[in-house]
Amino acid sequence: MAAGGDHGSPDSYRSPLASRYASPEMCFVFSDRYKFRTWRQLWLWLAEAEQTLGLPITDEQIQEMKSNLENIDFKMAAEEEKRLRHDVMAHVHTFGHCCPKAAGIIHLGATSCYVGDNTDLIILRNALDLLLPKLARVISRLADFAKERASLPTLGFTHFQPAQLTTVGKRCCLWIQDLCMDLQNLKRVRDDLRFRGVKGTTGTQASFLQLFEGDDHKVEQLDKMVTEKAGFKRAFIITGQTYTRKVDIEVLSVLASLGASVHKICTDIRLLANLKEMEEPFEKQQIGSSAMPYKRNPMRSERCCSLARHLMTLVMDPLQTASVQWFERTLDDSANRRICLAEAFLTADTILNTLQNISEGLVVYPKVIERRIRQELPFMATENIIMAMVKAGGSRQDCHEKIRVLSQQAASVVKQEGGDNDLIERIQVDAYFSPIHSQLDHLLDPSSFTGRASQQVQRFLEEEVYPLLKPYESVMKVKAELCL
């Protein structure tokens, strides 16, 4: 049975990233139509530049190519590739079939990587351009969430054990800070992308030097003109047959890092959902379990974690691919890159769409948070109580021993009897502590235990987050809708 299948058929496997999760716009960027249309555009740009620099290419040939950029006979191309065992030459023939007058000058002087690699770089750039505003929107939604809850005390956790208090907004800023680093890295790697350009079979530009009869300047002009037509500021000066596969490492490393950030955020949300302090959106008709109707599973956060793990592992592909590119190139890269580049971007696209949807509907339960604080705060307040007693004339050592005994009794009630923490009640009825009984409410005010959390939130948002989001103001209103 021949390899390949009808990918629109229910009898043929289709990647869930495309069929179930990723956005239509990201799927289109990695589609065959987008790819092969870009090949034709690159052939047109090459012909236009070659004509401008004096090669015998007519206006009629150029116009014929322009008129057929979208006229792609995919069936013919597939048949040609089956016959020739070469995808680029299959599309040269297919393009030439609908451009008979231009057929002889299509791909003039070029090698397969002229269309293959340059198209990949265009796709990487455009895919990054799709991700950047999506990530900015996630940051914006979380920034709104953090600002609104900047002063809401909550129990902090280290080692997932109760620690000092923080605020809900401050905790959210930990998430935002990681995503801001990801946004900066995505922008950097996007701006650092260079075009492969017009380089020939081993990167020496020998074929173009021959076409222009040894004119170095025209060869350099050709490279520059096509690079500018493709919208790049610069091209690699040095290439082998391909652009260095280190570029793929750079791009997928940034995406993998984004995956790590999203995994951490969504894990926190899942843990908070278990504590009943916070939940992701839950639709009115949504079913959490087929057997347990009360369940409210954090399905979206779980999906993000599941896909983020996949995204983090994909960076190993370009690392290994770059390491086995012998001399000017081997074909070890080809099949692998067809999979890992598309999957990385479709996965990143999915987790950003999902995280935006989550961040637009996060639900906080202040009463649950308050109750958990009441359970733990008495123990945390013991040092403040000791200091207040010393100020009232008591002995630190005597007070410490009193607190120690009462704390152990209260802990026994919590752990052995399943009761509430009654340390404060014990202190309130103990005559030894009568000098500070009137101060206990103040000493137990949760806001006095959150330090500068709310001020940190305000400063972080104003100095770091809002300036970073400013270039994306025009796209901030787009909502994230999930079908599944």
Rank of each mutant, 00 (worst) to 15 (best):
I369Q: 02
M181W: 05
K224D: 12
S306E: 14
F74K: 15
S19V: 13
L275R: 04
Q286E: 07
R459P: 10
K224W: 00
A388M: 03
Q286P: 04
W43S: 04
I176P: 07
G54D: 07
Q375G: 07
K246R: 12
P16Q: 03
A143V: 07
T347L: 12
D191S: 12
E228G: 03
L331E: 06
A291I: 13
E213L: 10
D6I: 03
L142W: 06
M389W: 06
L440Y: 12
A308I: 08
I269G: 01
V168W: 03
V413M: 10
R188S: 01
L307W: 05
K402Q: 12
S290R: 06
A348M: 11
R374T: 14
L132H: 09
H437G: 03
D6S: 08
K75P: 04
H310A: 13
L272V: 12
V219N: 01
Y294W: 07
P100E: 08
S323L: 00
E48L: 08
T38W: 02
S334H: 09
P298V: 06
L53K: 08
Q409V: 11
Q285V: 00
A411S: 01
H91L: 09
V254T: 11
S412M: 06
L346S: 12
V29I: 07
L275F: 14
R300G: 15
P435F: 13
N336G: 07
V88S: 14
S112C: 01
D73K: 01
V324Q: 14
L444P: 04
A47S: 08
V247A: 13
Q356L: 08
I386S: 07
N353S: 14
A308V: 09
R137A: 11
E213C: 08
Q428P: 00
T239I: 08
E81D: 13
S454W: 02
L84A: 04
V478R: 15
H86M: 08
F145H: 14
V364Y: 13
A146L: 00
F74L: 13
T242D: 00
E279W: 14
K66H: 02
H400E: 11
Y21V: 15
L121A: 03
G116L: 04
N384H: 10
A230Y: 00
G259T: 06
T350Q: 03
Y365D: 05
Y114N: 07
F460C: 15
T111Q: 09
S23L: 13
V254R: 13
E250R: 13
E213W: 06
E277C: 01
G96H: 00
I427T: 14
K233R: 08
R374N: 15
T58P: 06
D430M: 14
E463M: 00
V92M: 14
L132S: 09
K264Q: 14
S140D: 11
D216V: 04
M316D: 03
E462P: 12
A49M: 13
W39R: 00
S31F: 03
E401I: 14
L443E: 02
F232T: 02
L211W: 01
I57T: 06
K229E: 07
V390D: 02
L443D: 00
P10D: 14
R83H: 08
S290D: 07
C27T: 15
I358S: 02
R371T: 14
G214V: 05
D398M: 06
A110K: 03
S23D: 15
R37L: 13
M316Y: 02
V92A: 06
R85C: 02
M278L: 03
Q456P: 14
L209F: 12
Q210H: 15
T239M: 01
E64V: 10
P378Y: 14
V138C: 13
C172K: 02
L346F: 04
H93W: 05
H97A: 01
N185D: 09
N357A: 14
M312S: 06
L222W: 04
I386W: 14
L55G: 05
R33V: 11
P24K: 13
F379N: 00
C483H: 12
M89F: 00
G451S: 03
P467C: 06
A453K: 07
D87T: 01
I436S: 09
R452F: 12
S438F: 15
P471K: 01
R83D: 07
L362H: 14
V219G: 03
R141I: 13
P100Q: 05
H93G: 11
D144N: 06
R396E: 15
Q356A: 09
L121V: 08
S412H: 14
E79Q: 07
Q51H: 10
F195H: 03
M476D: 09
R149C: 03
R338L: 02
T204I: 06
S261C: 04
T58R: 08
K479Y: 14
K477L: 13
R141G: 09
G231N: 14
L53F: 05
E280T: 11
T313A: 15
R234G: 07
I386M: 00
A480G: 15
S359Y: 15
P435L: 09
F74M: 02
R125V: 03
H7A: 10
K402M: 02
R85T: 05
A2M: 12
L183K: 10
D248T: 08
Q184G: 06
G214N: 02
F433W: 06
S412K: 04
R329L: 04
F30P: 05
Q409F: 12
L423I: 04
A103Y: 03
V478W: 15
A136V: 05
E328L: 10
A335E: 11
L444S: 01
G4V: 14
I106A: 09
R196A: 05
K477R: 12
L132W: 04
Q161Y: 13
P133W: 05
I424S: 13
E417I: 09
T267R: 06
L252P: 15
K246G: 09
H93F: 14
M316C: 08
D445E: 00
D422R: 02
A230Q: 02
Y243F: 14
R190E: 00
K229W: 00
V414Q: 00
D120S: 06
I238W: 14
L484I: 15
D144E: 08
E370N: 01
A146N: 13
V115R: 06
S253F: 04
V465N: 12
D32Y: 09
C340L: 03
D32P: 06
L423G: 10
P162I: 06
G8P: 10
M387C: 00
L484V: 12
S448I: 10
R426E: 03
C98E: 01
H400L: 06
K367Q: 14
A163G: 07
K402C: 12
S23H: 08
P153Q: 11
R141H: 07
